[in-house]
Write a protein that binds this DNA or RNA. Sequence first.
DNA 1: CGGCAACTTGAAATAATTCAAAAGTAGTGG
DNA 2: CCACTACTTTTGAATTATTTCAAGTTGCCG
Lengths: 246, 246
Amino acid sequence: MSNKRVDIHNSNIPQVCVACEARHHGVCGTLTPAQLTKLSQTTNKHIYSPDEEMVPAGGEISHYSNILSGVVKLTRLMADGRQQIVGLQFAPDFLGRPFRASSDISAEAATEVRVCAFPKSTLEELVNEAPELEHKLHEQALKELDEAREWILTLGRKTATEKVASFLYLIATHIDPERSLDTAPMRFELPLKRADIADFLGLTIETVSRQITKLRKSGIIELEGTRIVIVPSIAALRRASASDSF
Amino acid sequence: MSNKRVDIHNSNIPQVCVACEARHHGVCGTLTPAQLTKLSQTTNKHIYSPDEEMVPAGGEISHYSNILSGVVKLTRLMADGRQQIVGLQFAPDFLGRPFRASSDISAEAATEVRVCAFPKSTLEELVNEAPELEHKLHEQALKELDEAREWILTLGRKTATEKVASFLYLIATHIDPERSLDTAPMRFELPLKRADIADFLGLTIETVSRQITKLRKSGIIELEGTRIVIVPSIAALRRASASDSF
DNA sequence: CGGCAACTTGAAATAATTCAAAAGTAGTGG
DNA sequence: CCACTACTTTTGAATTATTTCAAGTTGCCG
């Protein structure tokens, strides 16, 4: 009998969604089985390679996605080639700018990125019939706004060392969607190369490299090769990032 | 007979809302007369003086407001006293962080600011019964997110002169909610003093002052006293701010 | 008119960039 | 498996943009 309950529960949910992370923590979490079915019919899983462009700047927005795994860079380009990463997105974030035909921001895969994509129109229809979905998108927009303002503080007022420490702290606290914010030591692979980190922090590659060396020599971090970082104490890293509020 | 129509139209709308800007371009625009009445019963108009704190950082959020006139600074403070303005808000923006008990960001009046305030709970009840209201708030959050990311580019990659020009361009295009984005010369009073501009741009007061002098000597702007700015060509100012996308 | 805060200007100090080169890492094909 | 190339990262020395420190000047409100 217990397997009947399981059957009933799952039989209403589209096969592609059953094991999907986004259904639990992402925007799909608010949808009814019927709405999930509607969405899944236009849905398209896709894998991007590192540095592949996912959504070009300026172009017509034709689809949105849920990030299933990997890290996405949101970047802005200036006329003379100067570049700035204006945001990073992690699984299971929603990716896209709702209610706009186009955007000046391009989305690029930083790592390998798996997404579940669907047409703009499908989402917009669902939003009309499911206020809970718009609420979820609203919550994510507010979360991104909080993060963007945190980053404005970092770019405007922190030193180069504090900026790099802030970046490492950001990655440490976002790279694993499951992990709780505990104090245990951490080991992870940097999703960004030095050039990307520089574009995120408004610094040069060389300065980033020097600050990483400095943090390593001061014992805040250890390195394995060039991409693997070990953080003996998250609290110490947080202190180095000067992110304590008063 | 035409005055009967006008009567019907206006008799349903609360007296305090009739002439209100926020009803046309702000979040109140989506509310029915009945909802407007409900909101207006808990509504409280208030005037803040320049540099007065409107919402303290860290504190419990008890109310939201619509800005009727003036400019509001959103600021973040670091433990050691470093300060950064992370956003500016103009009439008829909605002011507050929905769905959160508190925020690290404080709101301060930059100029004299008139607001229409109401309790957190009233808004949250209205949101539940009026999806259009949440949509409007969502749109504003997305607009603020776009602006925050624009500012991240400014802070991360522009020179001091470009930053100051970007600030002047921002003010020129936001100070007057009515004015369309035309190319005619403009004259306006700066809503921020040099110290605030420095905190917004991540610079020092002295650097801001030097760049303003530089822009004046190059003919991009003219000054009357220290707060009145004349912009002979908005296009030239925009060029100086390096805000052209490719 | 006086006094205080806001703003400007100058000179020296500093943090970060630029330019240059070396060292490490990864992928490819013989 | 090693050699070859291309790319990424590190390190060093010189240069530059911005800050810091220190006076001045201007402008505003009582």
